[in-house]
Write a protein that binds this DNA or RNA. Structure first.
Length: 260
DNA sequence: ATGGTAGCCCTGCTA
C-alpha cells in the first residue's frame, strides 16, 4: 500500500497538478490539506473518474482537508467530536477515515502565526485536543497513522537554518513537545525510520526569495504511525518534482510505501 | 535590510 500527504495550497488552483500527480505516483490513499474549498465545490467526480473515492471537510476560502482512496473509505469523521470545544472552531483541520485497514487521521495543524500570540496559544491547545482525542479513540497497538501539515519542524536538522527560525513558530520547545507527546503515546516518525541520519530533507519551501531553488526549506509535513504500521514501512520519499514547474504548491508530497 | 510570493476574493487577510 502506498499513501501520501500533500498540502496543495488551494485545490482549485492545483486541481490539474494533483490529478497529474495521482496518475504518475499512483497512491492508494492521498491526504490533502488546504483545499480552500467548500464541500459543495469539492470536485468529487473528477477524482471518481481517476478511480478514487473521496471525502472532503472544509468551509471554503481557508483550510479544508480531503482524503482520497482507491482501497475504500470507511468510518469517516471530522474534528475532535461534539464534546470538545475546538480552539479553531469553524475551521476544518482534521478528517479521520479507515482505508485499506489503516486508520488515517488527516491533519492541518494551525500555523500559529507568531510567538507570542493568541494564535500560537490556540495552536498548542489544538495539539492538546489532538493528543487527548488519540488517547480516547485509539490504542498504540492499532494500525493508526496521523499525517499531514503539522506546521512544526521536529528537530533543528529539519530546518535549512536553525538561526533563521529563532523566535518564530514551528520550532519552539512547546510545539516540539506536542509532537513528542504523540511519540511517547506510541507513534513514530515514519520518515525517520527510513532516513534516520539524513538532515535537511524538506517538504515545504516558502514561495519567496527563491527558497526552493536555494534549498531553504523545512520538514513540517509528517507521518506519525503506530508500531503495526511502522513494521510494514518499506520506503519513504519527498516528491520534490511536484514542487517544480508551473504553479506548484509551496509543499511537496510525502509518500510512504507499506508492505502488503 | 522586519524583506519576499501566492491564493483567497478582496483593496487586506492567511500562510
Amino acid at each position: 500500500m502506498r499513501f501520501a500527504t500533500w498540502n496543495v495550497n488551494s485545490l482549485k488552483a492545483r486541481q490539474e497538478r494533483v490529478e497529474e500527480w495521482l496518475q504518475y505516483a499512483e497512491p492508494d490513499v492521498l491526504c490533502i490539506q488546504e483545499t480552500k474549498l467548500s464541500d459543495k465545490t469539492f470536485p468529487q467526480l473528477s477524482f471518481g473518474a481517476l478511480g478514487y473515492e473521496a471525502v472532503h471537510h472544509g468551509p471554503g476560502q481557508w483550510n479544508g482537508v480531503a482524503t482520497l482512496s482507491r482501497v475504500g473509505i470507511e468510518d469517516v469523521s471530522s474534528g475532535f467530536g461534539d464534546s470538545v470545544l475546538d480552539p479553531y472552531e469553524g475551521d476544518a483541520r482534521m478528517l479521520t477515515t479507515t482505508c485499506g485497514g489503516v486508520r488515517f487521521v488527516n491533519v492541518y495543524v494551525p500555523n500559529g502565526r507568531e510567538v507570542p500570540s493568541e494564535f500560537y496559544d490556540r495552536k498548542l491547545e489544538w495539539f492538546d485536543c489532538l493528543a487527548k482525542w488519540v488517547d480516547a479513540n485509539a490504542k498504540p497497538s492499532d494500525p493508526l497513522v496521523i499525517l499531514g501539515d503539522f506546521n512544526v519542524a521536529p528537530e533543528d536538522r529539519d530546518l535549512w537554518s536553525p538561526k533563521a527560525f529563532k523566535g518564530s513558530t514551528h520550532v519552539t520547545p512547546k510545539e516540539r513537545a506536542a509532537i513528542a507527546r504523540l511519540q511517547e503515546w506510541g507513534m513514530q516518525d515514519a520518515f525517520r525510520v527510513v532516513y534516520p541520519d539524513t538532515d535537511k530533507l524538506f517538504s515545504y519551501w516558502d514561495y519567496r526569495r527563491g527558497d526552493f531553488h536555494e534549498h531553504r526549506g523545512m520538514r513540517i509535513d509528517l507521518v506519525l504511525a503506530t508500531q503495526p504500521v511502522i513494521d510494514r514501512v518499506q520506503w519513504a520519499l519527498v516528491d520534490r518534482q511536484a514542487r517544480k514547474g508551473k504553479l506548484p504548491s509551496d509543499h511537496a508530497p510525502v509518500v510512504i510505501d507499506l508492505a502488503d
